[in-house]
Design a protein around this nucleic acid. Structure first.
Length: 103
DNA sequence: AGTATGACATAGC
DNA sequence: AGCTATGCCATAC
């Protein structure tokens, strides 16, 4: 069993393209529904190959402190993935929210 | 071993 | 509707 971080990475890796998930959801899949914070911490340590841009907060918006790329780049990447945005500028969680590998 | 911090979440004001 | 405060979990120092 790897550290939580690894679990988070694995879960994020499993997120299908055009789909996004929330920290809380990932935490839940990790077995720690209250570890949303730890998830964010893990993603901060996330190595290459981890589509961290597919991880959004429960508001459907990106975190206020994403990588130096900035939220703008984030939104761009998400758009490239085919992720629809709401008029509010947030991802349409109801449409691309990934509830787990069950799809 | 204890304290401090953090890419969240929820409730209250 | 936006901001502040508190809670929870795991990691780092």
């Amino acid at each position: 069993m790897d550290s939580f971080f690894t679990q988070i990475f694995e879960l994020v890796r499993q997120i299908p393209e055009g789909r996004v998930s929330t920290y809380g959801q990932i935490a839940l899949l990790s077995g720690n529904p209250r570890a949303a914070r730890a998830v964010g911490y893990a993603l901060h340590h996330a190595p290459d190959g981890i589509p961290c841009h597919r991880i959004v907060n429960r508001n459907g918006g990106l975190s206020d402190a994403f990588l130096p790329s900035g939220k703008e780049t984030h939104r761009f990447l998400l758009e490239l993935e085919g992720i629809p945005f709401d008029a509010s500028g947030n991802v349409k969680m109801d449409t691309v929210m990934w509830y787990g590998k069950e799809e």
